[in-house]
Amino acid sequence: MVTINKPATKLNKPSKPQKSSSPSLSAFVKAFKNSIVLILFVLLWELAPQLGIVERTFLPPFSEVIRAWWDLLVSGELWRHFQASILRSLFGFLLALAVAIPLGLIIGWYPLARDLLTPILELFRNTAALALLPVFILILGIGEVSKISIVLFACTWPVLLNTISAVKNVDPLLIKSARSMNISSFKLFYKVILPASVPTIFTGIRMAGTGAILVLIAAEMIGAKAGLGYFITYSQYNFLIAEMYAGIITISLLGLLINYGLSSAERYFSRWKQ
């Protein structure tokens, strides 16, 4: 028997070209590279109003915004709005996944359904969800239902269309290979089509995650009694400018959090890819 173990053990373990410097120093350099522009941005935000380059009434220094943010956090008010927003977006987002993934798998599997439905789905996807917000409010009122529905609407299309194209683009050779092993259609679907589609579906899920926040904040700005979008417009109307920026920062953090969560999930489910 031929031994092939030796050269192959090195496969896929690219040893990084280690420079002579100590690991702690190189870690420091990396952290510096990653954060320097961020630090400069914060500095600019702090100094520009302080030095009178911009009107501090409209852009309070960063430290003031952070103080306002901290006060809101301690008082629990920020948490209340944050909670309202994340519950709505999560609910709409998960509902969209529950609807769009199974539907997309079915549509993708049947060429006729795919050919018939793709144009109208593309039309819906490319209709800005916010343009439909008045319609949602007219039909569903101003309460939670309309806000969750608009998130659901906005999240559905990217997931649905990506799922359809994922199923359509599964390597035919894999299907042929599985078919030749005489497995049932259900098993073929469950064991081959579904896992092969996961990476492309996840691209859609990430797009939906970004969309969920965007649409929700806008909806909350138009009509709500709680939520980060509401909080921002409320602060603006009452001239609580530092609080307004605190709300904006919170939305950034929320966006980062969601993106991080989804990327981790994506990495986990696609760990077999390069």
């Binding site: 050779l173 894999l174 042929k176 092993m181 092969a196 077999w272």
Partner: peptide, 26 residues
């Protein structure tokens, strides 16, 4: 198709989400 015949393709046709063992167990 039937399991009395096994097929080996030019392009391997391995399931990329399964390990070597997982592919054989399939």
């Amino acid at each position: 198709p039937g399991l009395d015949r096994g097929i080996v393709f030019q392009q391997y046709a391995l399931f990329p989400w399964k390990t070597a063992r997982g592919n054989i167990e399939f």
